[in-house]
Amino acid sequence: MTANPETGSPLWQILSNWGSLIPTILLLLALAGFSIARNLIRAALLIALAFLSLGLLFLSLGAEFLAFAQILVYVGAVAMLMLFTILLSRPSEREHAAAWLDGGELLRGFLIGIILTFILGMFIAASPLASQKFQNDFPAQTSLSLQAIGQALIGDAAASFLALAVLLTAALIGAAILAFDERP
């Protein structure tokens, strides 16, 4: 008894063609809400929703392990850490009664977002991932075995893995410092 429909069945066809649509829309909505929410708790919950829908997106693209790791780490740990940080630090004085950001703040945020997107896009375009040679060397695999992922994580990719871990820690500490508002 298995619920996985055969790969040839029409249900499977629909799921594999359109399955990533809903998580994508959810992800975009959650991120939009996250960027304009003023209430910190709501923002943190929306980013948790964004992490969750990103996991679903990975799942719909067939990256099972990555999807579950994403949900486990980001929803289970990172989002919880954010919520804890928000609750343990004192409420900021800048917090107004309004639930969402006003127009000026939105505009400034939008500009910063565009600049960040531009920088990130430049890096991505310059990275070997985007080059034709990389895509030829590592053709897209429909299912990567767990063993292969494990080998890669402690073998070739160990250095970048550790660097990412350090980056994440730094980001979290930074978030804590931003949220922490010291008062006499």
Partner: peptide, 20 residues
């Protein structure tokens, strides 16, 4: 019901949502 390759990870990932 569903034979997942990373079923154990799925369990922990899903139960993480319950904390939220």
């Amino acid at each position: 019901p569903v034979n997942l390759n990373s079923g154990l990870l799925y369990y922990f990932a899903i139960s993480a949502i319950a904390e939220i």
